[in-house]
Design a protein around this nucleic acid. Sequence first.
DNA 1: GGCGTTCAGTGAAGCGCTTCGACAGCTGAT
DNA 2: ATCAGCTGTCGAAGCGCTTCACTGAACGCC
Lengths: 337, 337
Amino acid sequence: MSSVSIKDVAARAGVSPGTVSNVLNRPEKVATSTRSRVERAIRELGFVRHGSASSLRAGHSRTIGLSVIDIGNPFFTDVATGVEDVASERGYAVILGNSSGDRLKEERNLLVFAEQRVRGVLITPSDEDLSRIDRLKERGICVVFVDHPAARADQCSVAVNDVTGGAMAVTHLLEGGARRIAYVTGPTTIRQCLERRQGAERALLAAGRTPATALQEISMTAMTARHGQQAAEKLLAQGPLPDGVFCANDLLALGVLRGLMHAGVRVPADVALIGYDDIDFASASAVTLSSVRQPTHRLGQVATELLLDECDNPDTHAHQQIMFQPELVIRESTSST
Amino acid sequence: MSSVSIKDVAARAGVSPGTVSNVLNRPEKVATSTRSRVERAIRELGFVRHGSASSLRAGHSRTIGLSVIDIGNPFFTDVATGVEDVASERGYAVILGNSSGDRLKEERNLLVFAEQRVRGVLITPSDEDLSRIDRLKERGICVVFVDHPAARADQCSVAVNDVTGGAMAVTHLLEGGARRIAYVTGPTTIRQCLERRQGAERALLAAGRTPATALQEISMTAMTARHGQQAAEKLLAQGPLPDGVFCANDLLALGVLRGLMHAGVRVPADVALIGYDDIDFASASAVTLSSVRQPTHRLGQVATELLLDECDNPDTHAHQQIMFQPELVIRESTSST
DNA sequence: GGCGTTCAGTGAAGCGCTTCGACAGCTGAT
DNA sequence: ATCAGCTGTCGAAGCGCTTCACTGAACGCC
């Protein structure tokens, strides 16, 4: 059973193993008649190239590693499908690693990638210490950052501008007539949360407002719907309600929405509400949720293209730090009409 | 640069390459003092075992392939994390393949798996023609079905009982006092939709009702929130409202909820509503959604354990077709109190 | 002291593939 | 007739590892 090797194919086609390898890897070097003879033998024997042998000899594999923080998060899922699309189209396999934000797990994943001698790695780093990334590069493995702008010019990255996104959201609230705005966010150690807040402040300044007085921040320990509901309760308890609420992600926003509705607050009539990420469920809630959409799928595609370009053309490759722009999605929760 | 091989380690530790290999693979065969000397050399040189060379020689790799229908679906995402957990704990890498329900893409993924000589494959088959699965097994690659009960005894599988789930949901509606029940479903070609309906009918019969008159089916072309909302509009247009609605998934249910609320129908006071899958957002909606939860994460874990057992102990391994039971999750949308 | 036994470690063979220098056969220019 | 320049194919070397038959040394035991 099984294990048809290149030799068997060669014997059947009456050529040498080297020629079979040429058919596989540089078909243009082989005369048409020989080629079709070999191809027939391959089909007849059901030959499948042995990837390990191939990459052992060739010195590189046709796999890439993808290490993300949480594959359960729709954001990363979308990124992953983008990666998968491009990779599989180019004949690459994707090895998935989920770090759960755990430094140790991430390191273990990177080790697995190194053992598999992946061609390159796509990674959303789980923290700012990038020494382990350098170690990969010393090994000759290309690395592209995903959703993390590279600080260095010798490093590709793709990310989405969170400052712009925050500004868009708050500008939209202001244009809808909001005066006092609350920013419901997760842990302030998260870069995205911080930058979205910066954007919010920038929007207030641009509208001639003072962030210190016009913006109230509610920081929660996690970014789930449950925490959003708690945030709403906090808002309700704290005295006069803001008339616009910007949440650092949609889950928080859905929680806030639920909390406000339970208290009889009307959205958007009493309070306008906007989230971030535009997850599927933003358009499924009782009051559909305005949000800021990121080109997640494209993020994965472009990251993969950059990575494969860097691998295939190490000399001509120009490192790029690509920053995508988010997009405002207006729905019922901010449409006061 | 880089590329520290087993030979370099051997030279540094003053042993033969074979001994280094033993330290890596059968540490108990090596004297403690030698072992620690080798381990130090490994650390000092930053040696990383070459997976391709290893699996070429050993005849099998430490990777498994996971082919799912839609990694964007939270169901599969949860399964994937379960798989990843077990695999990475046992030192296996997971190669991800997304078929998007496309037969061709699935076949391409399986080819990639075969080239990588994965140890085994976990697959949610995208259709019922399983000949390509047999071809894999001829190659000596173990296969475990995920969310698809195997019809054959020589094949492992894990799945969740959809008939039971459907019955649970409808029994719950009946116990809450519902008399006329609507089943909002997706395309009737989907096995899950059919079986959940069978469960619904079984529950009605058990309660002494006639499915033909007590159950009204609304079949939509897709299972999204938008389609759910359309289903609600259909229900509203069709005359007397049912007093219980069972949806084949949560997205449909959220759409129905939204459609009913917009029309001023109170949930659960006027209509009780239950979904399926217990996605995160079920507990985040304006009226939290009762649902049927499946042990998705566990599904992935168990599937992987079965697979690795079959790989590691081909002789003693007993094929199993495991059927998990779903679990009822009661929330506001069915709590008439 | 000779003998079997166990324990540690050796080293060569070879997994299936790619690569590259060698070479045969041919064409067309000299 | 000779030769340079191709094109197409061959075949051996070797990628880094595991495996296994083997060698020595150490240790009782009669």
